[in-house]
Write a protein that binds this DNA or RNA. Structure first.
Length: 221
DNA sequence: CGTGTTTGACCCGCGC
DNA sequence: GCGCGGGTCAAACACG
């Protein structure tokens, strides 16, 4: 197991003093367990502090299921690795999170499709990295410091909770995210980010980026 | 009035 | 070809 550069001040899942006492609000989060998987072991750290994992092929990506089950599993899949990381507080009271990056993530069928970017038939479909993590939270949408505009909501098969689609509202930034509550455990919210922000975070201070940038990543290798 | 949400229609890939 | 499931569009709507 190797440890990537990200630094993490808190090594256990337990209580971490909330550095952002002013932001107590609406986000009631308990501790979170986050599992990640990736497929060929590549991990990049993006400019916005997120983890980027790449997979090579579509078939390799198929880890999650279309039935809305957890797209990241702690163990079991031969292609999976997982990283576990803890960080203090995303905003209000997020205690610890495990982050998963996954290209197939929520939708194995369209994992590599960018609806708006594949208009040119002959051209290769552009791949975008996806980062997924799950958080135990009472609220669906985490305040990660960026401004998001909801552009869709769909019912997911075999899941009683709908999936919400958000786009970053910053001009020229087409980062998307999906938010979905797990059927199995409705206390868990799965957030999937797609793309990389091309701009600084909107809300400075104790933001998600900062937290992610301080995460410690472990891999089984 | 600007910004964000809702929601039905539409599009697309895939499996049969 | 058709139906299904998922992702996106966009008009209408809500709100500060």
């Amino acid at each position: 197991m190797e440890t990537y550069q990200m630094f993490f001040p808190c090594s256990s899942s337990a209580n971490y003093p909330n550095p952002n006492s002013t932001n107590t609000d609406h986000h009631h989060m308990g501790s979170s367990n986050v599992y990640t998987n990736n497929f060929d072991g590549r991990v990049d750290q993006t400019s916005d502090g997120l983890l980027r994992l790449r997979s090579k092929s579509k078939t390799e990506n198929h880890v999650g299921s279309s039935s809305g089950e957890v797209l990241v599993h702690k163990d079991g899949h031969p292609h999976q690795q997982y990283y576990q990381q803890y960080y203090p507080s995303a905003n209000a009271s997020m205690n610890n999170i495990v982050v998963g990056a996954d290209q197939s993530s929520v939708d194995p069928h369209r994992a590599n499709n960018n609806y708006s970017e594949k208009k040119n038939k002959g051209e290769k479909k552009m791949k975008k990295p996806k980062y997924a993590f799950q958080t135990r939270s009472q609220v669906d949408v985490l305040d990660d410091g960026y401004r998001w505009r909801k552009y869709g909501q769909k019912a997911v098969k075999a899941n009683k909770f709908p999936r919400s689609y958000y786009r970053c509202t910053y001009q020229g930034c087409n980062v998307k995210k999906q938010v979905q509550r797990l059927n199995k455990d409705e206390g868990i919210v799965v957030t999937t980010y797609e793309g990389t922000h091309t701009h600084p975070i909107d809300k400075p201070s104790d933001n998600f980026e900062h937290i992610l940038s301080q995460m410690q990543i472990y891999t089984p290798y």
